[in-house]
Design a binder for these strands. Structure first.
Length: 562
RNA sequence: GCCCCGUUCGUCUAGAGGCCCAGGACGCCAGGUUCUCAUCCUGGUAACAGGGGUUCGAAUCCCCUACGGGGUGCCA
């Protein structure tokens, strides 16, 4: 138990690609707790499952953490963070360390080799299930005499090392969020602490690493609550101090189901099935998904596409993937400070009616006793509302800079096409109508299209804007063509003056009567930024070309629709 | 099956025995502003899971039930 020592927390994910929002919240709380107490925050990679680990995948969430503004004092070196005295911080590089403690436990008689194969254990487990018994390892290996054990070991028989769980002990976890949770040691079997491949199991590695890295507070997901009793016994046997524990409830989907990366595949598979797509669609000059992967993926609802393939497929199918990972929210145009605020609030609050706060506030006020016990559903609507507020409050220059960054990463075509000055106008024209940094790129595609690529929507509101009234929209377009062609300077103010003058003279000053026809002519639809800015960015040439093109197609565009 | 945890408006939550016929935020509904979309403004809707206790008094304490979640891996 920590008394007067420095607070040390850690975030210890397994390297499975991008950072999940649930994991992000765990990391955030650990980080904030350490900062609040002037302590240290460690990042550790739990890569003891050889089947699931690859170096490549481990890196992505480091960027995600940094993007959120979370830094770590010890851990893998990345982007100015990490390093430290108690490494290495990849568990796969700490095998000798674990072995030392395994040997110690064996010497103490607290651990022993067991030679059953996984198949044998599975069969025994299955038998127990059918007989409606609770399965627990029967300690058969303890019946082997020393000579036999030695002989097996000499033969090099595959084996695991199991921890000898004490009998008839009441084990109490004093959880900082949930209170005291007591269980009997008899609920637990002699669990495996070293796998047949020589790697430690999670239970063993966490206990050893937390102790060696001087971790004082373990803040982790509630799924580990029942593991903690095991860890307490391990710590006792190894002579380690017990850290303070706090278990966090899960972050769930709006429907209450667990938020999972599989949700993306689910959305994609549904779209594929609904549209009866039989083979991987084309994207650019390749396929969105490789042929072999496609059938493999379609056959089994549990299988998941690689991130790149999933994103590519979503793009061609024009499916909006549910955001699950921090990176998804980044792509969708959420601000990191907003995500942090929302995530922090999902399971903790400073009390009273305070909802909006920044990371500094979190670091100053975060406390375990205000962490909520019950699971929280992730509400995208509220996140979106927070993002909107943040965007609207932002100084114009900041918004423009953020938008530019976002464009560089996700929509470079806008930068190429618009250039410095027009991009600035584009940003200014879009701030007040943006809920995310991505909104305008999706809704304003007409800016980066060639004039002759514009297709006109044929629907009621388009028809209404073009044919209703006397004079009607088509007539206004013809008039505006002249008014705009002769404009001396092409900027928002001049355009506005000219259009307003036209409106006063020909439409009783009702701007809507001329703005909508104009909007349709240059964008193909009824939605765009303020019309004067839109025309300014488009340029005189494109504006006139599009109006002319619209007039040429007026009969098709205005045909009656049911 | 067994064990553990949880349960306030649709959602996130405030609430630590009287301040609560329950407050805020998001959503939703109704009206208003606006060149479209989005904003913005005004108003409104809506909850203590159920049942027993304890107490002068319970959303707050105790018990039971129901429901939700987690664990029961040579995954973490």
């Amino acid at each position: 138990m920590s008394t007067d020592q420095t607070v040390v927390t850690r975030f210890a994910p397994s390297p499975s690609g991008h950072l999940h929002v649930g994991g992000a919240r765990t990391a955030l709380y650990n980080w904030a707790f350490a900062r609040k107490h002037g302590g240290r925050f460690i990042l550790r990679i739990e890569d003891t499952d050889r089947k699931r680990s690859s170096d490549q995948a481990g890196l992505a969430f480091l960027d995600d953490l940094r993007w959120l503004g979370i830094d770590w004092d010890e851990g893998p070196e990345h982007d100015g963070c990490g390093g430290g005295e108690t490494g290495p911080y990849h568990q796969s590089q700490r095998l000798e360390i674990y072995q030392r403690f395994i040997d110690q436990l064996i010497k103490q008689g607290r651990a022993y080799p067991a030679f059953e194969t996984p198949e044998e254990i599975d069969a025994a487990r299955e038998r127990a299930r059918q007989e409606k018994r609770n399965y627990r390892y029967d300690r058969a290996a303890l019946q082997l005499d020393a000579a036999t054990v030695q002989q097996y070991l000499d033969e090099g028989r595959p084996h695991v090392i199991r921890f000898r769980m004490p009998d008839d002990r009441e084990i109490t976890v004093n959880d900082q969020v949930l209170g005291e949770v007591t269980k009997s040691s008899n609920e637990y079997e002699d669990f495996v602490i070293r796998k047949a491949d020589g790697y430690p199991t999670y239970h063993f590695a966490v206990v050893v690493d937390d102790a060696l890295m001087n971790v004082t507070h373990v803040i982790r997901a509630q799924e580990h609550l029942n593991n903690t009793h095991r860890h307490l016994m391990l710590q006792e046997a190894l002579g380690f101090p017990h850290p303070t524990y706090a278990h966090l409830s899960v972050v769930a989907n709006p429907n209450g189901s667990k938020m999972s990366k599989r949700d993306k595949d689910k959305a994609l598979r549904a779209a594929v099935l609904e549209r009866q797509i039989a083979s991987p669609p084309q994207i650019g000059d390749g396929l969105a998904v490789r042929e072999e992967e496609w059938s493999w993926w379609m056959e089994d609802p549990d299988r998941q596409l690689e991130t790149d393939a999933a994103n590519a497929l979503a793009e061609v199918l024009d499916v909006q993937l549910p955001e699950i990972n921090v990176d998804d929210f980044r792509r969708s145009g959420y601000l990191p400070e907003v995500l942090i605020n929302y995530l922090a609030l999902l399971g903790w609050n400073p009390g009273g009616d305070i909802e909006k706060f920044d990371a500094a506030f979190l670091c100053e006020h975060f406390a375990l006793d205000r962490v909520i016990k019950s699971p929280a559903r992730f509400d995208r609507e509220k996140l979106l509302a927070f993002n909107l507020d943040a965007l609207q409050e932002m100084p114009e220059n900041d918004f423009a800079a953020r938008l530019r960054h976002h464009a560089e990463r996700y929509h470079p075509a806008f930068l190429d096409k618009l250039g410095e000055e027009d991009f600035a106008t584009f940003a200014a024209a879009n701030q007040s109508r943006s809920k995310t940094l991505d909104d305008c790129f999706r809704s304003d595609r007409f800016f980066v299209m060639d004039d002759d690529q514009i297709t006109y929507e044929v629907n009621k509101s388009v028809r209404k804007a073009l044919v209703n009234g006397e004079p009607n929209g088509i007539t206004h377009l013809e008039g505006l063509l002249h008014a705009l062609r002769d404009l001396k300077t092409w900027d928002s103010e001049s355009i506005e003056a000219a259009v307003k003058q036209y409106t006063d003279e020909h439409a009783d000053g009702k701007l809507g009567k001329v703005a909508q026809p104009l909007r349709i002519a240059v964008t193909g639809g009824t939605v765009s930024p303020a019309i004067f800015d839109t025309l300014k960015i488009l340029g005189r040439e494109s504006t006139l070309a599009r109006i002319e093109r619209c007039l040429l197609q007026k009969d098709e565009i205005t045909q009656p629709v049911s």
